[in-house]
Amino acid sequence: MTAKTQKPTATLYRMVMDHHVCPYGLKALHLLKSQGFEVDDRWLTTRDATDAFKAEHGVRTTPQTFIGGQRIGGYDDLRRHFGKHVPDPDAKSYTPVIALFSMTALMALAVSHIAFGNPFTLHALEWFIAISMIMLAMLKLQNVETFSSMFLNYDLLAKRWVPYAYIYPFAEGAAGVLMLAGVLTWLSVPVALFIGTIGAASVFKAVYIDRRDLKCACVGGSGSVPLGFISLTENLMMVAMALWMGARWTGIGLLAG
């Protein structure tokens, strides 16, 4: 009979306390097991034990992984050891807006399917833009202060009148809700047209004229989305939605008259 191949072994030190279990310790444990390691899982169950371990090995954080008697390091170091990508927390990324627009598109298709039995309708496109406005406003409203600070880096109106940076997310959210409901079009259209036009002009100037390398405040003040084409498209979508709904509302009004 062929002897079974012995699994490689690793020793993992991680915090497991009554009121705290280190999430990175759990991730490191899962990663080691997924790589086929037999793990000697050693718990640091008190703050004193954790501090003593750090002092002994000259490290500032836990978890810490040892393979073959050699210290690999924390969770990010372990990922690097296995050749896996480690995200840069300061790197710019379009992932937040891709995730948001993907979900709002699916939501709009779902609502269209419920309402008309067909996900691919003109209403679905309208709802996609309206829901996107609402979701973007929600992200900004989580922390208006941090949003306003990032927004003031490039918005032309906010630079001249600071309160606009605080008003913007409320105006965007309100316009989105009214457009989604199809009510008070006389109010939602001018608001969306105004903030969308100012936004598009601001992004165009900052990116394509001044050539500034900035982060977009579109997903809130802590976002990592680069200011650029996506930000410009977002504002142009808002303008297009406002013009479309305004034209349709005016046409309905004329027909009713």
Rank of each mutant, 00 (worst) to 15 (best):
Y164H: 13
D41E: 08
T50P: 01
M133W: 01
K215W: 02
A55R: 15
K54M: 14
A49W: 00
L139N: 04
V97I: 15
I98K: 13
W186S: 11
T46R: 07
S222L: 06
L236V: 11
A158P: 07
M107R: 03
K7I: 09
R80E: 13
L100S: 03
T250V: 10
A3S: 14
E38Y: 06
P119S: 05
P226H: 01
T65Y: 07
I67T: 06
P190Y: 12
G176H: 04
F37E: 03
K27F: 02
C218T: 09
F101W: 15
T121A: 09
Q64A: 14
M103V: 15
A242W: 01
K92P: 00
R248L: 11
L109Y: 08
W43V: 10
L29G: 01
T46L: 08
L178H: 06
A3I: 11
V21K: 12
E56Q: 15
H81P: 00
A137C: 04
H19Q: 15
A171W: 05
L152A: 13
K27R: 15
F37W: 02
Q70S: 13
A3W: 07
V189A: 11
L227I: 04
A247E: 04
V183I: 15
H81S: 05
I98V: 15
M238H: 01
L32A: 00
G257W: 14
L122M: 13
E126M: 12
K159N: 12
C216Q: 00
V59R: 07
G36W: 01
P63F: 08
I252Q: 14
L180Q: 07
L243H: 03
S149Q: 15
E234N: 09
F116D: 10
L152D: 10
T46V: 09
W161Q: 03
A174V: 11
W249G: 00
T62G: 04
H81K: 07
